[in-house]
Write a protein that binds this DNA or RNA. Structure first.
Length: 568
RNA sequence: UGGGGUGUGGUCUAAUGGUAAGACAACAGACUCUGGAUCUGUCUAUCGGGGUUCAACUCCCUGCACCCCAGCCA
């Protein structure tokens, strides 16, 4: 069996990057070695768009028995912070990937980069330019007009060497001059018009402290770091397509290991934004509670919301990998989540909008312990007990005094099943002075214990419930999509105008079945008939239980209702 | 109007000259002690126009549309 066949068997869907890799393996490029890297800048939190890149780079390494490095791209001390380094590491681990002993920083290579710069200067391929930022922009030309050479372009090697030395030694102020590559000011590719290699920034770096006051630009850093680490396939987003000629130029002129840059389309997700800048705007403007607000598409937000790493990885696999820009339906993410949670989440009963029921013919003071299945998808998860008594809560919307067509739940005179308990029939509706239903009186059929009638009669609906005397109180936070429109950034005005005002609804008088006393952060529950929920990791306490709704269950009834409304 | 990219059902992705496939969504039905899950079925696609070929999503020509590039950000 050849290698090719092996890989085809282990891979799921193919994509253009895997095709390239398999061709490289076939032709024995780099002796068949595959080495990728994930290169975040530590200036913000990772989001699900990064998860796509993480799954790609780490996933490819796993699939082709290669390696993937984690390398922080920390070339701009004014924008980066250690806080972000830690969160990024945590998020990658949470997703289930590991970089082993290959944790690197671009700043690890500042000395080598400096030597590289010296080499280009000595080869007459780089020069110190004293033009001001404005002048540089002016000399660069425009998209349709070629640029013109800087008057400093023809400085001698010796002069450049001396000036660059002075730059390094801190003899100039910020912005006084820069080191530029001498390429071609008339290139139709703006990136090749003598790009900046080094700029002066008198600032403390989170790793190198005050050792440097000149810092290499992205272009003069990234490819060389890839090369130093012998990265074979350097994957980045489409935004860097135009930088590839420059990436290659530095590698060729420095005569170093030829890493290959390949670009793919970044992820866009409907009803949210995936841009660090925009997310930061939401955080700093207090539109959300922080980077890890459960409504945020950040990995920390999704984690707190109750998303599982498995569901996110599955999603990243299913969206595929291509160069066409696209907007993925968030429904796919939710599908992956439900699929995972359905298989693994234990079922419990909770009433979010309680309506009290008194079962008139059930003995006062009597308590029964009923068996409830933990997960119908997985019998090995066993059962647990739920207490039943004369007074219970059901969901307010499980009762309607004047039910429309297809409403199968409780209404006056109608019989329904209480999950795992009995059939009950509504005999009386109690209202307050305003006509609101405040309490129901029902009767139960003792022969239907466990939920089946010996005479074989059927009921159309099964309701979840909680015994009022045993219920535990909790706050439940219901989340909905962050924005009201599919693509907030495509709107004419500010994307923040499309924030969903109902993205968070807090319910304070919810009733949970008593087994939830033992709930823990990190366990995902299904509240039957409602959705998947998890304990709030920051705000929940013994005094005040707080749960987050991760995602609702699919709801046919909601669809029917919408259809009925539209008919009217 | 310089350069670099991208166009496949409503959405995302396959097919690398040989039956246009899968997933999500939608719709219909079956089943169900969750109106969940599961199962079955249905709908809808190669940007346009030429050409090469027995055969084109694929190759050629030509239009069109959309995206990216003029930071001392990455």
């Amino acid at each position: 069996m050849n290698k090719n066949t092996t890989y085809k068997e282990s891979s799921t869907t193919s994509n253009f990057i895997k095709n390239i890799i398999e061709e490289d393996i076939r032709t024995n490029k780099h002796n068949g070695r595959i080495h990728t890297r994930f290169p975040p800048e530590p200036n913000g939190y990772l989001h699900i768009g990064h998860a796509k890149a993480i799954c790609l780079t780490f996933g490819l390494a796993e699939e082709y028995k290669g390696l993937c490095n984690l390398r922080f791209d920390d070339t701009n001390p004014t924008k980066e912070d250690v806080e972000y380094v830690e969160s990024i590491k945590e998020d990658i681990h949470w997703l289930g990937f590991d970089w082993g002993d290959r944790l690197y920083y671009a700043s690890d290579y500042f000395d080598i980069l400096y030597e590289y710069a010296l080499k280009l200067i000595k080869d007459g391929k780089a020069y110190v330019c004293d033009l001001s930022p404005d002048e540089i922009r002016e000399y660069r030309g425009t998209l349709t007009k070629p640029g013109k050479n800087s008057p400093y372009r023809s400085r001698t090697v010796e002069e450049n060497l001396k000036l660059f030395e002075k730059m390094k030694n801190g003899e100039f102020d910020n912005g006084a001059c820069v080191l530029r590559a001498k390429i071609d000011m008339t290139s139709p590719n703006m990136n090749m018009r003598d790009p900046i290699m080094y700029r002066i920034i008198h600032a403390e770096h989170h790793r190198t402290g005050d050792k440097w006051c000149i810092y290499p630009s992205y272009d003069f850093t990234h490819g060389q770091c890839d090369s130093i680490e012998k990265i074979t396939h350097s994957l980045c987003d489409l935004g860097f397509e135009g930088h590839r000629p420059l990436y290659n130029w530095f590698i060729e002129n420095l005569e170093i290991f030829p890493s290959r840059q390949i670009e793919f389309a970044r992820l866009n997700l409907s009803y949210t934004v995936l841009s660090k800048r925009k997310l930061r705007e939401l955080v700093e403007g207090n539109y959300v509670s922080g980077w890890d607000d459960p409504r945020m598409p950040t990995l920390s937000g999704l984690r707190r919301r109750g998303y599982t790493p498995e569901s996110i990885k599955d999603f990243c696999e299913r969206i595929g990998m291509a160069k066409a820009e696209s907007l993925v339906d968030i429904a796919l993410l939710e599908h992956c989540l439900r699929e995972d949670l359905n298989k693994h989440a234990p079922r419990v009963m909770a009433v979010l909008h309680p309506l009290k029921i008194i079962i008139d013919n059930y003995p006062e003071g009597k308590i029964e312990e009923l068996d409830a299945v933990n997960n119908p998808e997985d019998s090995s998860m066993g059962t647990h007990k739920v207490p039943f008594s004369r007074e219970i809560f059901i969901e307010q919307n499980d009762f309607m005094e004047n039910p429309p067509k297809k409403f199968w739940r409780l209404s006056p005179g109608k019989e329904v099943r209480l999950r795992y308990a009995y059939f009950i029939k509504c005999v009386k509706v109690m209202k307050d002075n305003d006509g609101n239903v405040v309490e129901l009186h029902c009767t139960y059929d003792a022969k239907t214990k466990g939920g089946n009638a010996p005479d074989g009669r059927k009921v159309k609906a099964t309701l979840h419930w909680v015994s009022s005397k045993h219920a535990i109180d909790a706050e439940v936070r219901l989340y909905d999509r962050l924005f009201t429109v599919e693509n907030p950034l495509a709107e004419q005005d500010d994307f923040k105008n499309y924030l969903n005002p109902k993205s968070l609804e807090v319910l304070t008088s919810c009733k949970l079945e008593p087994s939830l006393t033992n709930a823990k952060v990190g366990i995902h529950y299904q509240f039957e008939r409602l959705g998947y929920f998890c304990m709030e990791s920051k705000d929940s306490s013994n005094k005040k239980l707080v749960f987050n709704r991760t995602v609702t269950l699919r709801d046919q009834w909601e669809k029917i209702q919408k259809a009925q409304k539209q008919k009217k």
